[in-house]
Design a protein around this nucleic acid. Structure first.
Lengths: 222, 222
DNA sequence: GTTTTCTAAATTGTCAACAATTTTTTTATC
DNA sequence: GATAAAAAAATTGTTGACAATTTAGAAAAC
């Protein structure tokens, strides 16, 4: 059992994660109002906690709060996507550079295992597993950077554009492309080949950006 | 008059700014406890507002909150300074690059005026004015980047290390150095000379970092 | 039938009293 | 006098009632 007593330090961050996930997976449509009493009942916590959580989600850019109107899910404009991805590129590059500097044989085997898992899951058409392994792959790269502040920034930025992520992974063509590059990436890390790392990040991210922009455009036609 | 009715949308952000400033200028010593009822009286707002403001300051990394013990001013370790400055370098570089791309004659005159103001204030020993002009200079560069997300990140990161800023400006030697480079900087922007921009940012920031590290070391001896 | 105005319901914002926990002070014991 | 236990004070966390505001719906006017 886990629900003996409510514990702020454990439960409140959990609440925030849950809400973040709900927004990211699209359980709330953009512009949908998030009613406090509603959430309070659904999540089984007091309205005060919901209010506090929403304030924090606002600072993270996931929702927008208007006085006496409450919270609505934030929308991303094309301009904002351009801005976010400009920042993302330089942060990911920095991350890769630091990861390469700290590269160890143990990292190599971990990354290779994950890369193999990704391919296997892809071949067996287990999408969820593949996404999970891919996530772990990138998380490990972040950890290798050994820069907690950078990690925090990258997570924050990822959260920001994940709102649009729902359908991005359904593009088969992109999948093939991304999967093939994991091996190249590991090699470049090992050899500390910064030029290759930069160009891999560049192409990967610019491709990702295109997907998001397409999605925004298709949504705005509704 | 400005105090007819309390207005959340206007007054709450103001409250946060005030608290941020108090922490930055060192009105609260590191590790000092921030007592809610205390702040409530001093700032003339309800305790609920103080609580909300403190929660936001925590997400910004300015304070640390411990259950049933309240908020204490955050401290920066040497490792954290290293991490933050690694990120700062790449973001400032990006900012300069974008600013150069958008460079206009009007920007040039604005920046030159500010640079002149900085030198003049320095010669007349008006430190406050000099700091203000220097701030405006860098704010204008940020605006030139035309990337609101980047600006938000840079402000966030600046807030994080400004905690240590109190005495950094008292170093005369550094001042001379920094002041002289504003002209070079403007020229490099105009010529879109990215190599020079990068190296200017590099040396500027690494010097700034040294100052902060020195300050931390001298404090930790208390 | 459409628009406008007014009323009721729903929702958010505020506050103060109370509960839970920590910190300080006092008291007791050796 | 120093240490430990107990009581008191101070501080933070929670809750619920009520005020302010917006939204939805009904009534009125055209």
């Amino acid at each position: 059992m886990n629900k003996n007593k409510p514990d702020y330090k454990r439960d409140f961050p959990q609440l925030i994660s849950k809400l973040e996930n709900l927004i990211i997976i699209g359980a709330f449509l953009p512009r949908e109002r998030l009613v406090e009493t509603d959430l309070s009942e659904r999540m089984g916590v007091s309205r005060a906690w919901i209010r506090d959580a929403l304030k924090i989600l606002e600072t993270k850019g996931l929702i927008k709060m208007v006085p006496y109107r409450g919270a609505i899910v934030a929308e991303l404009t094309e301009k904002e996507v351009e801005e976010i991805f400009q920042v993302r590129v330089v942060l990911e590059r920095l991350c890769n550079r630091l990861a390469a500097e700290n590269f160890s044989p143990q990292d190599k085997s971990t990354l290779q295992e994950l890369a193999a898992k990704i391919i296997q899951a892809h071949n067996e058409n287990r999408i969820d597993e593949m996404i999970a392994a891919n996530s772990k792959f990138h998380d490990h790269i972040m950890q290798m950077s050994n820069n907690d502040y950078l990690i925090q920034m990258l997570k924050q930025i990822r959260m920001r554009y994940y709102i649009l992520n729902t359908f991005a992974w359904s593009n088969q063509e992109v999948l093939e492309c991304i999967i093939q590059e994991h091996e190249k990436f590991i090699t470049a890390l090992e050899e500390k080949n910064y030029a290759t790392l930069d160009s891999l990040a560049e192409t990967h991210i610019s491709y990702s950006k295109k997907l998001y922009l397409n999605q925004i455009r298709s949504r705005s036609q509704l």
